[in-house]
Amino acid sequence: MKLPAHRGPASALLFEILGQDDLSPDLQGLNEAATLALPDTDILYDEDLQLCLFALYELHYAGFDEVSDRWEWHPGLLAFRARLEAAFESRLREAVGSIPKVPGTAEEIAMELFELANSSEGPSVADFVSRHASIEQVQQFLIQKSIYQLKEADPHTWAIPRLTGRGKSALVEIQFDEYGSGRPGKMHSELFAQTMAGLGLDTGFGAYINAIPAITLASVNMMSLFGLHRRLRGAIAGHLAIYEMTSSIPSSRYARGLRRLGFGTEVTEYFDEHVEADAVHEQIAGRDLAGGLIEADPQLGPAVFFGARAVCFMDELLGRWQMDAWDQGRSSLRAGELSR
């Protein structure tokens, strides 16, 4: 993808630096921008800082056109990222609160995660899409999702070499399925692209980055934060468990909404597939991944439930963002930014 348009002083400076091949830049301005912004902002909604985090993480995924791959491990950029991550993680921990005592057996852990997933509140985007959404609103919904779904499963894959035993087997079993079980063209990210194409949308990763609001970037940045830090391997496992547990039933509603609007199997396949796949994955993720991980190392319990509660929290904010926009008759995307 191309470097996005900047959204404030920090991202303006960051993108200017990334555009250079000189790997010994003066990063003082970046740090000053962070020092100025961090004390007074809610980082979850900070367009400038979430875009910086997104770009810094993206260097570890597919990178950017005309940006040197060498920036990925640049110590100064990593230090800048660490400052943003510290603020982001403490904001998430503050929202999640203290973690109640974690049960000891895989079965009890799975049960508790299912209950947590079930108790998630907030407005249901799935219900709205199923019954009422217009084609334009479904396009907005797909564009919001695209910043994760076009690289679906990748942030959790970072955790594979950091796990052992039953938890690792479980994660690999889920990821193999996410990547299409070896069938070309059937990766979930590819099925998502097929859905986007069916609605006339650009399927290139990041094609709509300038339209994606901070809160959506934050939900994806959270996955990269959990996935890229070994100390947070429990959190990425808890994240995946809740993600899978809150997917089958909403997916059937999204598919129903698309059929209501007249779309056929090629467009609904992504969601139809997730009804069946995630009914399998949620069992494996709850019992064998999260449960197996904690059974093997009880010290990971609080991290697993931190990740689980963090995704419930972020899902509520993201759902509310979209429904508030639609209730007020406006787009859920950043104003005037749909065109590239």
């Binding site: 079993e173 079980s181 069938r183 089958s248 009804v275 069946e276 009914a279 399998v280």
Partner: peptide, 21 residues
């Protein structure tokens, strides 16, 4: 289409024999 499957036990699935949650 997948190796490991979940088979419906509650009777309410719309995609039986598979589970749909």
């Amino acid at each position: 289409t997948r190796g490991t499957v979940a088979l419906c036990r509650c009777g309410a699935s719309a995609i039986k024999p598979y589970c749909d949650g």
